Amino acid sequence: MDGTTIAVQAEILVPVEEAWKSWTSPEDIKQWNNASNDWHTPQAKNDLKKGGRFVYRMEARDKSSGFDFSGTYTEVVPNKLISYTIDDDRKVIVEFRAHKDRTTIIETFEAEQSNPIEMQREGWQAILNNFKHYVEK
């Protein structure tokens, strides 16, 4: 990673295999990939392999705005690591650390230049927290 990096993490109270499946399955991604209830992910495509691409369509529920969050995988180690490059050339690493019946997920990403660091951290943490809530219910 070349630029300023931000890390967020959460302890998920499920085994790593379950966390991995929910993190990578398009049907699951559509259920948890939003930072607030005002947003959702109506479409998700995920070709989880080195060189594979993902596209998550993120939209405001009131249809006032939306964007594609997309990129290319650079490394995939099942139940351990996903790294990818977002289409704006920022790098992201997602680590899955197994601890018996729970999993720690650590996401480290390069900051973008148009929003404050704390705002970016809060947004990514909110999505990770939403993932935790979804998987643990």
Rank of each mutant, 00 (worst) to 15 (best):
V8P: 02
S22C: 11
N33W: 10
N37V: 09
K21D: 09
E75P: 01
F67P: 02
W23F: 15
Q9I: 03
T104E: 13
G123A: 13
E27Y: 01
T4N: 10
L128F: 07
E11Q: 15
L81Y: 03
I29V: 15
A111C: 09
E11V: 13
A111H: 02
G51P: 09
I29G: 00
Y56G: 00
M58T: 07
E11M: 13
E17H: 13
K132Q: 08
F69G: 06
F67V: 05
I86T: 04
P42Y: 04
F131I: 07
D2K: 13
E18L: 15
E75R: 13
N130T: 08
D89F: 14
S65T: 12
A35V: 06
S36I: 08
A126P: 03
D28L: 00
E122K: 15
Y134I: 04
R61E: 08
H99D: 13
I117R: 14
R57H: 11
I127D: 00
P78Y: 05
V55N: 14
F54E: 02
K45R: 14
R61Y: 01
I6K: 02
F109G: 01
A19S: 12
N37M: 06
E122M: 15
P15E: 08
T104Q: 14
I117N: 08
P15A: 11
E107S: 04
R121W: 15
H40W: 14
E18S: 15
S114Q: 13
S83D: 00
S64V: 07
S64M: 09
Y84V: 00
K30Y: 02
V92I: 08
T41A: 12
F67Y: 14
W39G: 02
D88R: 07
Y73P: 06
R61G: 11
G123L: 11
K45C: 05
D2G: 13
V76E: 02
V8A: 07
K100P: 01
I29F: 03
Y73F: 15
I106K: 13
E17I: 08
S65Q: 13
T5K: 09
D62R: 15
I127A: 09
L128H: 02
M1D: 03
N46M: 05
Q43E: 12
I127R: 03
V76G: 01
I105K: 02
Q9H: 14
K80L: 05
G71C: 03
E107H: 01
K45T: 15
I12M: 05
D87M: 09
S25P: 00
P42V: 05
K100C: 07
Q120R: 08
M119Q: 15
S36A: 10
T108V: 04
W20F: 08
Y73M: 10
